[in-house]
Design a protein around this nucleic acid. Sequence first.
DNA 1: TATTGTTATACTCTATAACTATA
DNA 2: TATAGTTATAGAGTATAACAATA
Lengths: 158, 158
Amino acid sequence: MPRGAAFLLAQLGAHAAGRFGERVGGLGLAPPDVGLLRMIATDPGRSQRSLAADLGVVPSRVVALIDNLERKGLVERRRSTEDRRNYELYVSEAGRAALAGVREVAAAHEDDLLAALDGAERARLAELLGRVAAQQGLTPGVHPGYRNLSKRAGRREE
Amino acid sequence: MPRGAAFLLAQLGAHAAGRFGERVGGLGLAPPDVGLLRMIATDPGRSQRSLAADLGVVPSRVVALIDNLERKGLVERRRSTEDRRNYELYVSEAGRAALAGVREVAAAHEDDLLAALDGAERARLAELLGRVAAQQGLTPGVHPGYRNLSKRAGRREE
DNA sequence: TATTGTTATACTCTATAACTATA
DNA sequence: TATAGTTATAGAGTATAACAATA
C-alpha cells in the first residue's frame, strides 16, 4: 500500500513534534510553554484572553498554562492599570534566557531531523511546505496542537 | 523569526492529522481505528500482543482499541486453537468495506491538503519526505501518534 | 450588562499494576 | 514460572459552566 505525501507529513510531523518535545523537556520546558513564551516575547503586555483567541483555546486553559510559566519564573503577570480586569503578560529575564536555549535546541533539532537532506534540498522542502501551509490557511508560528479539537467531527476513540 | 522546515513539518503534520481525523470521523471511525484496521488487514490472524509491540503501546491499550473495533463489527476476535491464551484478529466484511471508504477519504484528503502543489511538486515533496522518514528510522505506515510518549522528556507543541 | 480571569467539575485518553486463564 | 489478554485504577490534559471583580 503506497503512502502518499499526506501520510508522510502526518507521520513525520508527529515524529518531529515528539523529538522537539524531548529536547525542550531537557530545558525544563513543556512544549506548550515554548509557544506561549514566544508569543508573549513577540508581543509583550498582551492579555490572556488574546492568547486564548490566537491559539484557538478556551481562556481557562490559558490560566493553567500561564500559572505554570509564572511558577517557573519565566513570565510575569502585571495587573493592567488601564483596565484592571486584565493582566499584562511579560517574559522575565529567566524567560528570555530560556528562549535563547530553545533557539539552540531548535537549530540542533532541525539539523538532526533533516540529516538526510543537503542544504538545497532543505530549502526546497521548506519552500514546498511553506506554500502548502499558506494555502491551508495555517497561522505562521502557531502550532495546531493547542487547538480545541472537541468541536470537530471525528476525534479519537468512539 | 524565520520558521524552518522542522517547524513547518510539525505544524503541517498536526494539521494533516486533524483534517484526516475529521474525514474518517465522518465514516464513524476514530483515527486509531484506521491504523489498527490496516495492520490487521495486512497481516490477518495476528495477536493483540504483536500489535502492541509494533505500535509501541502497552497491551492493555490494545484491548480497548480492539474492543471498540469489535463492537462496531469491523474486527473479529477468534480464540487461537494452537495456543488458547491468545486471539487471532481478522477484519470482517464490514471492516473491509470501511477500509475501502478510508481509501477514498484518504485520496480526497491528499488532494485537498496538497492543493497548492502540482503533480511534479507533490512527487518531489513525497520523495524528500520519504528520505527524511527513512533516515529517521520511521516505520512505513505506522503513525507515531500511538506511541507511549509519557516516558519521554517533554511532549507536545512545536 | 459585558468582559477578564478564575475555580469547580467532568470527561477522555492512556499508562501501571494486579489478576485470569492458559501454557 | 511465563505469557496473552483483561480489569481496576490513577494521572494528565482539556473543556464547560458558574463565579468574582471590574468596566
